[in-house]
Amino acid sequence: MYIVFSLVTLAVFLFCVCAGSVSVPVKDTVTIIVNSLLGLPIPEGMSKFIIWFVRLPRVICVALTGAALSICGAAMQGLLRNPLADGSTLGVTSGASIGAVLAIAFGITLPGLSGGGTMLMAIAFAFFSLIFILALAYRLDYSLSTNTIILIGVVFNMFAHSIVSLIITFAGEHVKSIMFWTMGSLSGASYANVLTLLIAFVICSTVILCYSRELNAFAIGEDNARNIGVNVKRVKLIIMIAVSALIGVCVSIGGTIGFVGLVIPHMTRMVTGPNHKRLLPASIFSGAVFLMLADLLSRVVLNPVELPIGVVTSFVGSITFVYIFYSSRKGR
């Protein structure tokens, strides 16, 4: 199964690097990538700049973001035993948004690191949101039950949206860039972004994958997990931290990209079943493929105008989700 997933992902990856406003043949694309990696000269007439400096980092970032959001969604849906949950249910995405919007509005930067201020603020606010939500949930409910966390997440999301709106009101000349960022875009992705995403993805997704058996237990029920010997509080905390860190990094680089974490694990589960040993790796591949295709659509559908990727994912995702929800209800 994983061989098929890998081949499909690779094929879509190559297709997305080749296709766009300027189409580049597959052979030329492969030559440019291989020669650049090996430090060999690029044959004349081949557009190295478009492939190597524009499309390649962008498509890698898109694939990593899709994979990251998807595995985070799958993990949250298992942990909270709720197919409607994803990273945003925790309020982490909204929390990260506050940090990123603050950084853009007030021009917070890190010397020598482009976009470093936005990234740092997004990650910091994602963590603060998590700590705030968990502390509040713990005070209200000793057992940190999933219902309490989801309810607090919903309320926190509303609160965060009001804060973001307030910042936008006073953002002055930054309004346009904030609005574009909130709709989600990876159009300016660089190799620095690729490296950051790759490090965060490898660390956090490894942690999540290591807890696939515990996620199975949570997906059956939190009481069941406790009774078979899972250290419920510790595992819940570790997975939430991994998810919030990964989402924080994704949000800081690509903005808020909705529906990936919600719809993709849901669709993948239809193929692999609910066992997280299969679901999590499959979600990585399917999330990457979905977001690469969504990004391609955003580039070509209104060419030369580029749509924010968040608009495409929300549009496609919401229709797909309504269809899945309707089909499953109708089948009952």
């Binding site: 035993r81 709720n82 197919p83 199975n216 997906a219 059956i220 029920g221 009481d223 069941n224 009774n227 589960r269 079943g273 609910p274 066992n275």
Partner: peptide, 10 residues
């Protein structure tokens, strides 16, 4: 525990 609903098709 008392019988409870299961969310996913394990």
């Amino acid at each position: 525990m008392q019988s409870s609903s299961v969310g996913y098709s394990f």
